[in-house]
Design a protein around this nucleic acid. Structure first.
Lengths: 355, 355
DNA sequence: GATTCCCACTGAACCGGTTTAGAAAAGGCT
DNA sequence: AGCCTTTTCTAAACCGGTTCAGTGGGAATC
């Protein structure tokens, strides 16, 4: 740590900080602390003129109530929490969270609320993290993402009495509002698109079946095949990671009657699948059609560009944040159903070559 | 928001919470509040037996000091901040932050500290965000990433008196410790690798020159060419985004004497470049060699797999977090130089075909 | 035995807000 | 005018810790 001599010492600069507290404002306005507090939080019981005067003095003195003091007396933290339990590899290749968080922030920042983020390695730590966030009073509410079958977080959060919003609808009972982007239509549209092109052997590289969205996309895949009058397709389960997507693709393509099209449960796996197809000398889309899910930025720029399903994580983040704030304010909030993800057709899908 | 009748109401569950405070502990242990505080923070002035007794009572009662109360009296928040100012697109395609944050968390969590994350759209908002984090006392220290030329954050943070750690060494004077991964050797190794293979026309798709790491990689590129006795290479500046990487590649490849190798300032752009090469019918690595930077997960699974430079963002996160904690504890901390990023040779580089 | 010193410990102030009980002032009604 | 109600405002308690000045007792010093 090098401190050049000419650099202003940090301590020297914050010389005369007069610490303007509510007490100072009260004195200057000639009223009691309590009244200043009332005026600030526009509570009844303050005459209009006094209120104005107090607020003027406050502004003049540049007073901002201390978040810490306020936290102590109100027992709230004015912050929301997001706990992410994901394998670091999967997390790193999936742009969902950065976008989601950007959306959340766009709502929280103007409200003066902060986002406390925790990234944890496994589910046990995850539950523990929720507990300590509550015990420490770090957050007033949380986002629950990556819902799992019979998710243990729902009853835990209910027990802790912590307001929460779920990203998607849990499969069990839940006292919390859900903000949902239905992914079923997108997956069904993918399959329908492939069926229309003439594909009959369509496989699915599914995500983890412990995750609801993994399960749901898989079910949608099966349903869509049936709707199209096609036989059940081969399904390979993965953990959503790029590596697993690659492996699954190899397995599918090196068997006797390989599929002519593969529907992937997310884009990173689809991109890995594209790479694997190239490696195996299988031409896309001539010999193999590929679809992804999420419409991450990469999709447009790989070759061929990826047919995929476009969700809108940023909008999701905004909506989830608003819903959570409403819940905390009113004690209740309605479920929100965002527009379903839509199929975006690009170059990675084409009619099958054989037959 | 649907509450099934059989679901335990959240309020019903937190029925009798006896609120165990320091007062309760003190009473039960037969000592004063102050002494409990002393015992807890192992301060001198408490006899060994009393200390043990107090701690036993505390454990028995399950007492955890209130973070909020502690925050108010110590004027600290026990949280660290990370402010990210990036175009959402770039942020989404770059897995640096998720990994970095995972590393940071692995250090903070055991210490009982939280990470407050802010994602902001531009630099002005960024500075404002730092100010309010301090004004609200949300954090005790911050990470400064994506250093820019003559970075305005350094003097601001110094003025605010907020402890900070910079990711990389700023180009101006800085009172803060820097945790650095030198990216120069990696870029130089890339160029040397290409030169050894026989490439003579090597181009660079650079990142934004407002960012120090963009500038540095660009300088390293130029220096490496010179060291290899090659003429200055063509350089196209971008904003690090996938889209820009794709455009830059098209421009480079559709000119008269296209380069036989391109060194990209990050992996996402390299992957986009790979896609563009395919689209233009330029075979990689036969007609064009490509190198990236960061070694993101995708590199291994695109085709051909990408030769790149491997940094270790997670280790970087851990190291930055430790350094920041040390700084806050001791009032000073040493710079840390992490092992330089290393070249990883994969399939996207080969000897040039022509000549 | 008196003085000094040190150590363990207490009581109260303090951090900076919110909240409540109740006093003072203002207004309404007969 | 006298009484009751309502409104405006104050004082003090409270949130739950930390910190500091000061008390009391025991050992060490002379």
């Amino acid at each position: 740590m090098n401190i050049p001599a000419n650099f202003p010492a940090s301590t020297a600069m914050k010389s005369t900080a007069p610490k303007v507290t509510i007490e100072v404002v009260a004195k200057k306005a000639g009223v009691s602390k309590g009244l200043v507090s009332f005026a600030l939080n526009n509570r009844p019981g303050v005459s209009p003129e006094t209120r104005v005067r107090i607020l003027e003095v406050a502004k003049e003195l540049g007073w901002k109530p201390s978040l810490r003091a306020r936290s102590l007396s109100t027992q709230r933290s004015y912050a929301l929490g997001l706990v992410i339990a994901r394998n670091p590899d999967v997390l790193a290749s999936d742009p969902f969270f950065p976008s989601f968080i950007a959306g959340v922030e766009s709502i929280l920042a103007p409200e003066g609320r902060a986002l406390v983020l925790s990234v944890v390695p496994d589910e046990e730590t995850e539950l523990h993290t929720y507990r300590s966030l509550v015990a420490d009073g770090r957050v007033d509410g949380v986002f629950v993402s990556d819902l799992r079958h019979n998710d243990a977080r729902i009853p835990l959060l209910a027990e802790l009495g912590l307001p929460a919003v779920t990203l998607g609808r849990p499969d069990g009972p839940s006292p919390f509002p859900a903000v949902t982007v239905d992914d079923t239509p997108g997956v069904m549209a993918s399959v329908a698109h492939l069926a229309t092109l003439g594909h009959r052997r369509i496989a699915h590289v599914a995500g983890s079946s412990t995750l609801l969205h993994g399960l749901r996309r898989r079910a949608a895949f099966a349903a869509a095949l049936e709707a199209a009058g096609l036989p059940a397709g081969q399904t390979v389960e993965t953990d959503f990671s790029v590596a697993a997507g690659s492996d699954a693709t190899r397995r599918l393509l090196t068997q006797d009657h390989p599929p002519t099209a593969i529907v992937y449960a997310n884009d990173p796996m689809a991109i890995a699948g594209l790479g694997m197809a190239h490696e195996l000398g299988v031409r896309v889309p001539d010999e193999l059609s590929i679809t992804g899910y999420d419409d991450i930025d990469f999709c447009r720029y790989v070759y061929p560009p990826l047919t995929t399903v476009s969700a809108a994580p940023m909008v999701w983040g905004r909506s989830a944040a608003s819903t959570l704030l409403t819940l905390m304010e009113n004690g209740s909030a309605d479920d929100v159903d965002l527009p379903a993800a839509r199929l975006v057709v690009r170059g990675s899908t084409a009619p099958p070559s054989d037959r």
